[in-house]
Design a protein around this nucleic acid. Structure first.
Length: 697
RNA sequence: CGGGGUGUAGCUCAGCUUGGUAGAGCGCUUGCUUCGGGAGCAAGAGGCCGCAGGUUCGAAUCCUGUCACCCCGACCA
């Protein structure tokens, strides 16, 4: 027995009673807002709910609270608690509701609630049911609380009331990475994958995990910006190297323009303003000073604010205006490698970040035809790069009015299909007409003595390509890098756990690496890394699997004796290893890499073909994009059909309507599509050719 | 901008409803065993519990304020 913890030494009410906290007033039957005197006698101990129940059953009568009312309340609370405990025990066996619902097990009332809740974001149980049951609990809280049958009596009265309520969802044996991965104990996982969840289970989360496991990038302290890690940046460097060569080969020169653009420049082109004004970072000050509390505050306001470039048409236009005097100065073919900032609300590594790296080409031409030709030429360069280097099949096409670049006359793009069958725009090429030339006054004196406005183009690809690569090729064991862009083609893993042979194995590996480096693939020496880190072999191997290195070689004493290497290809199962004679492997390495490259392209293309369908009726079109989940007609499935090749009348209103209802847009009007008269799949109006419809990133 | 949440060890999170010694798993360090494969055992290091006030003998826990972040919607490809 020990002293009561209540405010026994005081005569007045406790402050919290006066504040009429909703929780208190509700729990106590509404009586606690009122001031009451304490009627107890000091030193006597009777029921009081303010005491520490866990420590003692004693209740203090010295408190002002009405013991009888609160005791009754406590009893009902105990009953509720018991119900929750039972519910909790049942939930423990369910695991993630998504799995539960898919498994087709008979539904309980609890499961029904969970399922309904999570299905609130159809595509996004992704954001809902990630990783842990406890995370799910949070998101499900709102809906769960509304289902009256098991609401806590004090629901909503406190911060996080639902998450602290007794039915704590234990971590499901299915939902935790570790549980499933480690030593598959009693619950025998179906197939162990290096990445959890798998693509099928949760595509969005799978993507994040692949990027993380491959050590490509991570989130930074700055919201919406990413840190690109060495492995990810090496990929980007390869993209840069190859593309830069292609640009140079088509006559372009690199230059660099300022990060900051005067606000007035952006205002020059009306459509451009509409497109970018809402996502610009603005610089208004140029120095800092110490504030009164010692913290730094901005000082020295700029006369004219500067924006951080979301794209450089305006400032490059202003520069071109100075550079271009005569038709002899044209064409002007410039490219810049740079970073840009678009203040995005929601971001995903590589796919959409506030700051990203890219390349933007800007050209000025004397005639319209020449500028159009340039636009198409660069589109072809992008398509070539995507297909032959990234092994990513793309549709080349023209954008509809609603998807056109702000300020452009015509926008062309390459569109690729990701493994969730959504479209990703991987590169764009714009014919800008004379819009920006007029805005920036890029004029020249033509051969006929007339002062004319130039015709301009712009085109770009960004670090988004890395995201495209990830989502095109990776599997449930992590990233798979196309060999022609791989920072490392071959990784050699020496088996050195026996000290007596370790040095011999290492020497052998170094010699093997040197021989491989003498071979060439895709215009450079084969890149080899000997990973001699002091780690366990399994961990080490899986790291490289997750990084997507095309070929892994294991070399141990036994291989040395036999003059062989033990080889595994990333495009096959991680366990699928074969012994190959050493010299044969070295000689055939380049061919092997090309074979892997070709195989990846073929696989990606087959996937796209499989999920691209010619559709001619409206009913089929809508069904294609809203497949029903088996067993529940009301729940849209997560994965839709893919790309639909259908006729479209070209009406922007119709397109907007389809976007609102189905989330589907015209990805592009393919260039290589043959003219084929038909009727619009939505309106039935005549149409000249088929377009590519799809859901997009 | 509207709505809903969360801040606890490097990471993922328990603990809070009912105030009383700061917890787990993974990761990290060391040792032994194991190892042609994502190891086992043992020991160890690591925490202004977001910040500031308040209540209390005592606050990670209750109250008030504040900051940051996340999710949904809106916006955007």
């Amino acid at each position: 027995m020990r002293p009561c913890a209540c405010a026994c030494t005081r005569w007045t009410c406790a402050p919290w009673a006066r504040t009429a906290s909703p929780r208190r007033s509700r729990a106590g039957g509404g009586a606690h807002g009122a001031r009451q005197r304490c009627h107890g006698t000091p030193g006597t101990w009777t029921d009081c709910t303010r005491c520490a129940r866990s420590a003692s059953a004693l209740r203090c009568s010295w408190c002002w609270c009405r013991a009888s009312v609160r005791a009754a309340s406590w009893r009902s609370w105990r009953a509720t608690w018991a119900r929750w405990s039972r519910a909790s025990a049942r939930i423990a066996t369910l695991g993630c509701s998504r799995r539960s619902s898919r498994s087709g097990a008979p539904s309980s009332p609890i499961r029904a609630r969970l399922t309904r809740c999570c299905a609130r974001w159809p595509s996004g149980a992704s954001s809902c049911c990630v990783r842990r049951a406890s995370v799910r609990r949070r998101c499900c809280g709102r809906r769960r609380r509304r289902s009256a049958s098991w609401s806590p009596p004090v629901a909503g009265a406190r911060r996080g009331a639902e998450s602290r309520a007794p039915p704590v969802y234990p971590v499901s044996p299915m939902s935790g990475n570790e549980q499933q991965q480690k030593k598959g104990g009693g619950n025998a996982p179906a197939a162990k994958t290096a990445i959890t969840p798998t693509r099928e289970e949760n595509y969005a989360e799978w993507y994040q995990q692949v990027v993380r496991s491959a050590d490509l990038a991570e989130n930074s302290p700055v919201r919406g910006c990413m840190v690109i890690k060495p492995w990810g940046y090496a990929l980007w460097e390869n993209v840069q190297r190859v593309l830069d060569g292609m640009f140079k080969a088509t006559g372009h020169k690199n230059a660099y323009f300022p990060l900051f653009i005067p606000l007035s420049f952006l205002e020059k082109e009306a459509a451009h303003v509409d497109g970018f004004a809402k996502e610009c970072a603005v610089v208004t000050h140029h120095r800092l000073k110490a504030g009164p509390d010692g913290k730094l505050i901005p000082d020295g306001e700029l006369d004219e604010p500067l924006i951080v470039r979301p794209t450089s048409e305006t400032i490059i236009g202003a520069t071109f205006a100075k550079w271009v005097q005569s038709y002899r100065d044209l064409p002007l073919l410039i490219n810049q490698w740079a970073n840009v900032v678009r203040w995005e609300m929601r971001t995903r590594l590589f796919l959409r970040t506030a700051e990203f790296l890219w390349q933007e080409g800007h050209t000025a031409h004397a005639t319209e035809a020449e500028a159009v030709e340039e636009t198409m030429k660069m589109l072809k360069v992008y398509a070539d790069f995507a297909e032959n280097w990234m092994a990513m099949p793309v549709f080349q096409g023209r954008k509809t009015d609603s998807e056109r670049f702000p300020g452009a006359v015509d926008t062309f793009c390459i569109e690729a299909m990701m493994q969730d069958r959504k479209a990703l725009q991987a590169g764009t090429s714009h014919f800008l007409g004379q819009n920006f030339a007029k805005a920036s006054e890029i004029q020249f004196l033509d051969a006929d003595g007339q002062q004319k406005f130039a015709w301009t183009t712009s085109w770009g690809v960004s670090t988004r390509l890395i995201g495209a690569m990830v989502m095109t090729h990776s599997d449930d064991d992590g990233l798979m890098v196309p060999p022609r862009l791989a920072p490392t083609h071959v990784v050699i893993l020496p088996v050195t756990h026996k000290p007596e042979t370790a040095q011999q194995v290492l020497d052998y590996c170094q010699k093997l690496a040197a021989d491989l480096r003498a071979q060439h693939f895709a215009g450079r020496a084969i890149e080899v890394e000997v990973d001699a880190r002091d780690m366990r072999g399994g961990d080490k191997m899986w790291q490289w699997v997750k990084k997507g290195v095309p070929v892994r070689i294991e070399v141990g004493p036994r291989d040395i004796e036999q003059g062989a290497v033990f080889m595994a290809r990333r495009d096959r199962s991680a366990k699928d290893k074969v012994a190959v004679p050493r010299d044969e492997f070295v000689k055939g390495a380049a061919a092997l890499l090309q074979e892997i490259q070709d195989g990846m392209f073929a696989r990606a293309k087959a996937f796209r073909e499989e999920h691209t369908k010619r559709i001619d009726t409206r009913a089929e079109f809508e069904a294609f994009f809203t497949p029903k989940r088996a067993g529940d007609e009301n729940q849209p499935s997560e994965i839709h059909g893919g790309f639909a090749l259908s006729h479209f009348c070209g009406d922007a209103v119709v397109e907007a309507d389809v976007k609102n209802r189905l989330g589907v847009t015209v990805r592009c009007i393919p260039l290589d599509g043959a003219d084929e008269p038909g009727t619009c799949v939505i309106t039935g109006r005549p149409s000249a050719r088929r377009v590519v419809w799809g859901k997009s990133y």
